[in-house]
Design a protein around this nucleic acid. Structure first.
Length: 921
RNA sequence: GGGCUGUUAGCUCAGUUGGUUAGAGCGCUUCCUUGACAUGGAAGAGGUCACAGGUUCGAGUCCUGUACAGCCCACCA
């Protein structure tokens, strides 16, 4: 055998680095715009600039890369736009933490200097994840890489905000928002993650004014009582009719507050009496509005009690809670504390319990946007895969609430709003504000809140104004807030392509084809992108949304840094290779992925298998091989045709799987074809040819088929395993002359289309029979305890079918090669003698004679068991066939099938029964 | 409280419109270092498809209910 200088183990490291650099440098990732062709575009879900690649990214980007590479091979102009998100709160937190280590705060630095520091941090650390995406093999067009804080994308953000304002879809108002006392910023409803916690209901007595009596009410947050401005009952509640028009005394502060009646109060909860704290609870805020209650904010932005909290001033909210409960106990106004599980909002970034907090924020009116998005869905313009996510999307849109978009941090897009200090106070024009909970039932009441005048010295502008357009004053102050990070993300599918400029990219590549993402950000991102696309581009940003599973650790937990259960994809790439990582993920990715390190061995073993199959093929080529069109060769044997057919069917199946986002099935098909069909059968079979005394033409044919199948396999595997497929394809290119190798890379080779449709059916059938015989003989060998090197002296195969006779006759030499048999005879009627055992197939029986008593005994048992099994199955079929309902209702082909099956099994049964007799002799 | 998903081999999971004897990987048993590969090869064992009903000639697959698990949504203080 020719010397082979390839190592027996695949070395992923060297290969991966080499090819990725070559691809990127050669510009293969950059499509050329061809107006005669329909492009295929994907925008990446931009990872956070603070992020490092985790398994979720690996899964998400592997799927995108598969789609991208597949389409590129189908010669669509294919664009994958990469980029990174500035991740306002997360990034600011990271940099602030770093400053804290140096003993500094952002306030010491000042805004300008701080933002400079963040940019510096970004330059130094922000490219970590894009480097890691390269290691994964992601074939993004890096020449179009974007960052949400790029000048052009910032311009898009500003354009979007101002446009929405012009359309009356942006407003500013005083509302209860979710406030994170740790991050010191407002959060949108989506950013306040509700988590079930084991809290408590505190029952407290409020004395009734002018009476020795009191009312008892229940609350989960006693500290907010400092801001109570009323107590409420349900007007229909019989029990409390006597409280009508009364006043109660707020304990601790001794404030006199009224008893109000409101339908909101649920008589069945707690005592049926509610304390009303308009500044610290959204419902109370609404009630306060309805009853024109005063609003007392008792907290500072850091969650400590402020000067309105009397003696509790300066205490943290939870400390204040303890002290208040204690003081109430002392005053005998505390009744009881009852455990009470309830959902409480937590900051999605730092997990601090958010405080419902009254403040002035900017909102986007979502209902008009959502209506467009719903309409687009009804018209089938955007489809979710799997379909069940549609419902999640629709129900969120139907119940949408306004979006609080201002954040009290520094890192982000500063809101393009200025306040004229001169105009301020001169309320020019009043206009009722549409409330945050417009979609909820309380909306009509909220609308009667004190209105904020829209032109009350507020300037919303595309460019930085030099003077107030109303009064000409230069005394302007810019709104210090920045926009929610998602306010730039939702523009991503078109801002990355140049919007608001009408660039060539935007015209050609928008809308994109598919969005690949995880379930967690359907609301945050997917739905909002659809709304933005429709609002600003008048077209959905993508036609398909593929929602893949969540990556979890074995055992079901989410993979997270804090749990310390991370499996780092880069470590897996280092150890086993990116291809192994990618392929393993795809094999597992049907639903949520539960990972353990061992699971990646599947992919690693597969890469090694591919590698070694290649070593075998290459070492069996003699010199430089010329590959003519295999399909035209008339020297193809049945096995050649069989493997070509299998290859065809696999290509077709993988294609279908990609079309339907069924990546695990596609990976399975590729795996099974390459390993079982190509390696286990075809390679083993052709060894007989390559090493035997076959005619040189036969050898050359086999070599051609080997190369042909291997080359096409590399194309099929390329989307899954870009690196090894390229490496092997290039190795073949060095040794083989063929049209396809005029190309530079397998990346640009065409996606295999079936070439042998409706052909080779007969050959496929006879190979199946041949495989039966080989497996049968091997089974017998194992049962007889033969050593691999030992030859079975005499195998007799009985068959009455002409096809089987022909097939076995044709493959005799291969059978003896694969199953180690010295003599094979095919007979119509095998003369059975005692001491023979056999295996029975539909058309074929295999016999071997001359066995030991122990072997015979074991085989007798086995035969008996087999007979019982067959009898059971046949009985079942007979029952069915004698059932008049079945016969009259089932389709004819099913009945025919059953008949044929019965006959088949009956024949087998007879054969086994005869065999059983052999043991009795 | 509402919604969604899952429950199939020891483990992790496939199973597209209902139709042969339900598949894969890992693990397990036996054998094999044979000239591509022990990250390998050959043969094999292992499943009343959570439970109870229903529709149907026929159900892992469709319907209803139950149990368990997980996820998402939700302002009952």
């Amino acid at each position: 055998m020719a010397a082979n200088d390839l190592p027996p183990r695949y070395d992923s490291k060297a290969v991966e680095k080499k090819w990725y650099e070559k691809w990127e440098k050669s510009g293969y990732f950059t499509p050329s715009i061809d107006s005669s062709k329909k492009p295929f575009t994907i925008v990446i879900p931009p990872p956070n600039v603070t992020g490092i690649l985790h398994m979720g990214h690996a899964l998400n980007n592997t799927i995108q890369d598969i789609l991208i590479r597949w389409h590129r091979m189908k010669s669509d102009p294919t664009l994958w736009v990469p980029g990174v998100d500035h991740a306002g709160i997360a990034t600011q937190n990271v940099v602030e933490k770093k400053l804290a280590k140096e003993g500094k705060t952002r306030h010491q630095l000042g805004r300008e200097k701080f933002i400079e520091t963040v940019w510096k941090w970004k330059e130094e650390h922000g490219s970590a994840i894009v480097k890691q995406l390269r290691r994964l093999g992601a074939s993004c067009d890096w020449s179009r890489e974007r960052f949400t804080m790029d000048e052009k994308l910032s311009r898009a953000v500003r354009e979007a905000f101002v446009t929405l304002h012009e359309r009356g879809l942006v407003y500013r108002g005083d509302y209860i928002i979710n406030w994170c006392p740790r991050c010191q910023t407002a959060l949108s409803d989506e950013e306040a993650v509700h988590q079930e916690i084991e809290g408590a209901l505190y029952y407290i007595k409020y004395p009734i004014e002018g009476s020795k009596d009191h009312v008892t009410l229940a609350t989960t947050r006693p500290e907010t009582m400092l801001g109570d401005t009323a107590v409420a009952i349900n007007p229909k509640d019989e029990r409390y009719q006597n409280l009508r028009g009364k006043k109660v005394i707020l304990p601790l502060l001794n404030r006199v507050i009224p008893v109000i009646e409101d339908d909101f109060v649920d008589p069945d909860f707690g005592t049926g009496i509610v304390k009303v704290t308009p500044a610290h609870d959204p419902n109370d805020f609404a009630m306060g509005a309805r009853h024109k209650l005063s609003i007392i904010n008792v907290m500072n932005s850091d969650g400590t009690i402020n000067e309105h909290g009397g003696p509790y001033k300066g205490l943290d909210r939870f400390e204040a809670r303890k002290r208040i409960v204690h003081d109430l106990e002392t005053q005998r106004l505390f009744v009881k504390r009852v455990s009470h599980g309830h959902a409480v909002g937590h900051c999605y970034r730092c997990h601090t319990i958010v405080e419902p907090y009254l403040s002035k924020q900017w909102f986007v009116k979502m209902k008009p946007l959502a209506e467009k998005a719903l309409k687009a869905h009804r018209e089938g313009k955007v489809k979710f895969y799997p379909d069940r996510w549609t419902k999640v999307y629709v129900s969120w849109l139907e119940n949408i609430r306004d979006w609080c978009v201002s954040r009290q941090i520094w890192w982000g897009h500063q809101i393009p709003v200025w306040y004229c200090e001169t105009c301020k106070g001169q309320r020019v024009e009043r206009e009722p504000v549409i409330a945050r909970s417009e979609a909820t039932k309380q909306s009509s009441e909220i609308a009667s809140l004190p209105a904020v005048a829209r032109n009350d010295g507020i300037i919303v502008s595309r460019t930085n104004p030099a003077a107030c357009p109303v009064c000409g004053s230069k005394n302007l102050r810019r709104d210090p807030d920045v926009l929610d990070t998602w306010f730039s993300s939702w523009l991503w599918p078109f801002s990355t392509l140049g919007w608001p400029e009408q660039t060539q990219d935007l015209k050609y590549f928008y809308p994109t084809a598919v969005l690949v993402t995880a379930q967690e950000i359907i609301f945050f991102w997917v739905a909002r992108m659809i709304m933005a696309g429709l609002e600003f581009m008048n077209e959905v940003p993508f036609h398909s949304v593929f929602i893949h599973g969540t990556v979890r650790v074995e055992g079901g937990q989410k993979m997270s840094k804090s749990l310390g259960n991370i499996i780092d994809p880069i470590e897996i790439i280092d150890e086993m290779g990116a291809d192994a990582l990618r392929f393993s993920l795809m094999m597992l990715a049907a639903t949520d992925v539960y990972l353990s390190r061992e699971k990646f061995e599947m992919g690693r073993n597969f890469t090694n298998k591919i590698w070694n199959a290649t070593r075998f093929v290459l070492s069996n080529l003699e010199g430089f091989c010329e590959l003519s069109d295999v399909g035209k060769l008339d020297r193809l044997s049945a096995v050649d045709k069989w493997i070509l057919k299998e290859l065809d069917q696999t290509a077709e199946e993988i294609n279908k799987c990609f079309e339907n986002f069924r990546f695990n099935e596609g990976a399975n098909a590729a795996y099974h074809f390459f390993w079982s069909s190509f390696c286990d059968w075809y390679l083993e079979l052709v060894k007989a040819v390559l090493m035997g005394q076959e005619a040189p033409e036969r050898k050359r044919t086999v070599q051609a088929v080997l190369v042909y199948v291997l080359e096409k396999s590399m194309r099929l595997l390329h989307p899954f395993m870009p690196f090894i497929s390229e490496e092997i394809w290039q190795l073949l290119k060095e040794r083989v002359k063929s049209g396809v190798f005029n190309l530079e890379t397998v990346m640009l080779a065409s996606w295999p289309a079936p070439g042998f449709k409706d052909k080779f059916e007969k050959e496929v059938q006879s190979i199946r029979m041949f495989q039966d015989v080989v497996v049968g003989i091997r089974d017998l060998r194992t049962r007889l305890g033969l050593k691999p090197a030992e030859m079975l002296p005499d195998i007799r195969i009985g068959t009455k079918s002409k096809e089987a006779t022909d097939a076995i006759g044709e493959f005799k030499s291969q059978i003896s090669f694969l199953a180690k048999v010295s003599k094979i005879s095919v007979e119509k009627e095998v003369k059975k003698t005692s001491g023979m055992i056999g295996r029975v197939y539909s058309d074929i029986e295999i016999f071997v004679a001359g066995l030991s008593p122990e072997n015979l005994k074991a085989e007798e048992e086995r035969t008996k068991k087999k007979i019982e099994e067959l009898e059971g199955v046949i009985r079942g079929i007979e029952n069915r066939l004698s059932d008049s309902k079945f016969v009259s209702n089932a389709p004819r082909e099913i009945i025919e099938k059953e008949h044929a099956r019965k006959q088949d099994l009956a024949q087998k049964l007879t054969a086994y029964r005869e065999n059983l007799n052999l043991f009795k002799q």
